[in-house]
Every structure is written in structure tokens, then in C-alpha cells.
């Protein structure tokens, strides 16, 4: 008698779903599929298999009792995750965006799990792998063993040290900082805000570029930036600005009121919220027009999260609910 069909491979939930989808695809009507469906399907099945290998290597580390075995499984898992990474990257040309994003997300989830397994395995070691890496929120915290060691002393690059800083406000606390580029002869320059705590910053006029680094509890109001804005490491701040491009890295608990020509992006952020631009001062219309920012494209709400490459909404950002939004702020009376 004909043997029954083989049982589906025993796999954790997610890969099985993939495999099921794959087998359905294959069974349905291969002739109806677009020509590039088969390489995609081939990738998905290879990826599912490699993912399974990585997952089982990872779960093996937690089960292995002698530390050497666990170490071996751990490095096996690392290699398997690297394989997975490479697989996804090599297929990046042929994959549709959603498949690519989910593959990348799977890899980054595994990496996080691997980091956690590694930290559990050697909690006593006096070094950390990466100072900046944060364990995912929902994972149990390590027991409070050692505080993170100080970062290795940075070797200052003498060539960089010798450079004079450009225009900007740096290293201030509890200050009101005002700059009006229209009134000075430094027209259309770049500007830097760095190491500010509890400051109110008002920048009127047009700026070619804006660099923002390490701000805590600040409120920042900017007229028009006709280039890009780069924001890194800010916490509990509010920004109101108009710009061509905005990149936001390592922001926490911060609101952004934006008008932006292209899509704003966030990376390594949490608890950031977005709302439409809400700023006024005498002459802002002219500044916005000269900077090519007279129209609101609505892109303030089209945020790309580089740490959340999935079709569903990122947990790292949201819109400011309408009833909580700031009223348009008029800073005409704030003078240098």
C-alpha cells in the first residue's frame, strides 16, 4: 500500500508557518506564479532551514551543562546566525521588500537572543561586548552583578582634536539660547547643538545643515533647514523644526514637530512621537519659502524605523495624539 505522506517537519511555530506557505505555493499552480517566485521560494525554504539550525544551536547552549559545551554551542549559534545573515543579504536583490524585511528582522531577533545567551553564560566576565547594545526590553534583566565597565579610553585622533568647532551652542545648562542667522553675516551656515541640559533653544533664519548631539530635557525651535538634520542621543526633549531631511538616532521619550520634504528616519530610538510643525515668528514664511519648505508634504508622519523593518507599525514611535499636541508657538519676541 502507498505509504502515508511524511509528517511535516517538526519545527518551531514560525518556520513551520513559512514552510506551510511554501508548500502551498508550490502545490497551488506553479505556472501561475511570476517567474521570480521560485528563487524567492527557494530562498524562503533555505532561510527557514538555516533559521531552524540557528535556533536549535541557541537552545542547545541553554541546555548544555558543562560550560565548554555551552561555549561550543554558543559559537555554533553565532556561526549559524552569520550564515543566516549572509543568506538574507545575498538574496536581497531578488526578494520582495516584505520578505527581505522579515528575514532581516528574524536575523536581528536571533542576534539579540544570542547576546542574551552569551551574557547569561558568562555574567562574571569583566567586559561587555558592546557598550551601546541594549538587551530587548521584554527579556529578563541580568542579575545586578557588575556595573558596566567604563568604555575603553578613546584614543583621540590628533587631527580631529585640532579642528576648531564651527557655529553652535555647546555644553550649557538651564540656559535660553537664541541665534538669528538673518541678523548675522554667517548666512546659510551649518549649526551644532551639543551637550545641552534643560535649555531652550531658538534658531531663526535658514540653516544649511544642523547637527544635534547629546541633549537632555531641552526644547528646540528651528526656523528652516534647507539641507539635513542629524540628531543623535537625545532624551526627554521637544523639537519643532522644518528641514529637507531628518535622521534621528538614539532618541528616547522625545517629541518631534516636523515639516520635512522626505521621510524622517529613526534608528535605535524608543518612545519617540511625531506631530506636524507648529512654529511661527515674524518672517518665518519667507525663510520657509526660500528653503523650499513652503508646503507641508505630510511626510512628518511617514517615519522609517531602521530597527523595525516590518510591515506592522514599529513599537518605537507613534503620533502625538491630537489633544496632546502643542499649539503653534510664536517666538517672534525671543531675541538674541
Amino acid at each position: 500500500p502507498p505509504s502515508p505522506p511524511p509528517p511535516p517537519p517538526a519545527a518551531p511555530r514560525k518556520p513551520r508557518a513559512l514552510l506551510v506557505r511554501l508548500s502551498r505555493r508550490g502545490a497551488a499552480a506553479p505556472s501561475l506564479e511570476t517567474p521570480d517566485a521560485s528563487p524567492v521560494a527557494a530562498f524562503l525554504s533555505r532561510f527557514a532551514a538555516a533559521k531552524l539550525a540557528a535556533e536549535s544551536a541557541l537552545s542547545a547552549c541553554s541546555r548544555s551543562s558543562p560550560e565548554e559545551d555551552a561555549q561550543r554551542s554558543l559559537s555554533g549559534a553565532a556561526a549559524a546566525i552569520d550564515d543566516l545573515d549572509r543568506l538574507a543579504a545575498e538574496a536581497s536583490h531578488l526578494l520582495p521588500p516584505y520578505e527581505l524585511r522579515s528575514a532581516l528582522a528574524a536575523v536581528s531577533d536571533l542576534r539579540a537572543a544570542h547576546r542574551l545567551a552569551a551574557s547569561e553564560l558568562r555574567p562574571k566576565k569583566s567586559f561587555s561586548f558592546r557598550n551601546k547594545s541594549k538587551a530587548p526590553k521584554n527579556l529578563p534583566q541580568d542579575p545586578p552583578t557588575l556595573p558596566p565597565p567604563p568604555p575603553p579610553p578613546e584614543q583621540p585622533n590628533p587631527a580631529v582634536e585640532a579642528i576648531l568647532p564651527g557655529l553652535g551652542f555647546r555644553g550649557r545648562e538651564g540656559a535660553i539660547l537664541v541665534k538669528d542667522l538673518r541678523a548675522s553675516d554667517e548666512k546659510d551656515g551649518d549649526f551644532t547643538l551639543a551637550d545641552l541640559v534643560s535649555c531652550q533653544v531658538y534658531l531663526k533664519g535658514k540653516y544649511r545643515a544642523l547637527y544635534i548631539h547629546r541633549l537632555r530635557d531641552c526644547r528646540v525651535f528651528v526656523g528652516a533647514v534647507f539641507g539635513s538634520v542629524l540628531i543623535e542621543d537625545v532624551e526627554r526633549c521637544t523639537f519643532v523644526m522644518a528641514a529637507h531631511q531628518i535622521r534621528i538616532h538614539e532618541a528616547r521619550a522625545t517629541d518631534f514637530y516636523l515639516r520635512v520634504r522626505s521621510r524622517p528616519i529613526i534608528e535605535d530610538c524608543s518612545g519617540v512621537r511625531f506631530a506636524p510643525h507648529a512654529l511661527n515668528y515674524k518672517g518665518i514664511e519667507e525663510d520657509l519659502r526660500d528653503a523650499g519648505l513652503e508646503d507641508d508634504t505630510g511626510n512628518w508622519a511617514n517615519v522609517d524605523d531602521f530597527k523595525w523593518l516590518r510591515a506592522v507599525q514599529s513599537p518605537n514611535w507613534c503620533l502625538v495624539p491630537e489633544e496632546e499636541r502643542l499649539q503653534t508657538i510664536d517666538i517672534s519676541d525671543v531675541l538674541e
Partner: peptide
Amino acid sequence: TSVISPTLG
């Protein structure tokens, strides 16, 4: 070059 979003990919 007036509307360029940061490159995702």
C-alpha cells in the same frame, strides 16, 4: 535632488 529620503537598502 530636492526630495531624497534616507536610503533604506
